[in-house]
């Protein structure tokens, strides 16, 4: 943990205000239950377009749960249930009749541990495109290359696209997973602690990547690492746990403000490392 007096630096490029950005997603009074256990309660939060939003908070406070409710990944967990609504471009993705498959295509995801498929690099990136029914080789080649370039991996793999995705290093695997996610051109990319399994150098590469990706995509990232939140995000939501172990939103705001001038005592304690 950081020393108590540490001042977290906020990246110069961080967007100062919300006013210039459109709301891409809106989390509206969301509670998520796992069977009878309420993991998060009544969270309200906007996600701005072409900005990076970070979720921080102590372990078990529901960051992953909240993130996974943004593309309905929690649907896969038996007994998971959501109250409230999550709007994507103003439409509730939990409304009856919504196509989950389509939502997941629009809201892509990168996981904590790199999880490439045991296939070639090319097939990994092409996977989502093939699901969409794309067959044309020339188009496929082009998108695969573009996605790998965007994920800063092209130079490493261009000579051997047939090699197994699992043969890459951890950091490269994670970039492959990013390439795979952006190949289907999602609008939002969710990242759940994408660097926690990586070494510092690979971590920096991914962080740089996030900065370029936000020009095209809206990004939501969960991180345990306060410096990372400060370095990469424009907005930060700080979650904590109540006495009933349900996660709730303590404070949300532009990253710079939240880190330099937190409104809540709890936030200040957390970012200065006094708890959590």
């Amino acid at each position: 943990m950081q020393p108590e007096t540490a001042v977290v630096k906020v990246s110069a490029g961080a967007q100062p205000a919300a006013a210039e950005a459109d709301t891409k997603m809106l989390i509206n009074g969301v509670s998520v239950y796992y069977k009878a256990f309420r993991a998060i309660k009544e969270i309200d939060l906007p996600v701005y377009e072409n900005r990076v939003t970070a979720f921080i908070g102590p372990s078990g406070c529901g960051k992953s749960t909240l993130l996974r409710s943004l593309n309905r990944m929690n649907d896969l967990i038996p007994g998971a249930r959501l109250e409230g609504e999550v709007l994507l471009d103003g439409e509730n993705i939990y409304a009856p009749g919504q196509d989950v498959v389509d939502i997941r295509r629009r809201v892509g995801m990168v996981f904590q541990r790199p999880n490439p498929f045991p296939m070639s690099v090319y097939d990994n990136v092409a996977f989502g495109l093939r699901l969409l029914g794309l067959r044309k080789k020339s188009v496929m080649d082009e998108i695969v290359e573009r996605s790998l370039r965007a994920a800063a991996l092209w130079e490493h793999v261009k000579d051997n696209l047939g090699q197994s995705g699992m043969a890459l290093s951890g950091g490269q695997q994670q970039r492959l997973c990013i390439a795979r996610a952006i190949a289907v051109e999602p609008e939002v990319i969710l990242m759940d602690e994408p660097t926690s399994a990586l070494d510092p150098v690979a971590t920096l590469t991914i962080e740089d990547l996030i900065q370029t990706l936000k020009e095209k995509f809206t990004i939501v990232i969960v991180t345990h690492n306060m410096q990372q939140a400060a370095r990469v995000s424009d907005f930060t939501a700080f979650l904590s746990m109540d006495d009933d172990r349900a996660g709730y939103l303590v404070e949300y705001g532009p990253t710079m403000e939240l880190f330099t001038n937190p409104r809540k005592k709890l936030t200040e304690d957390y970012i200065t490392g006094r708890f959590g």
């Binding site: 593309n71 896969l76 498959v101 995801m109 999880n115 996977f127 989502g128 699901l131 969409l132 997973c177």
Partner: peptide
Amino acid sequence: IPRSQREAAMALGATRWETVWKVLLPY
């Protein structure tokens, strides 16, 4: 098969059926 494989497929918009057919059986 690790759950992460299923999640990876689902997060790309695969249906259950596609997940079984294109990810789990090959894996």
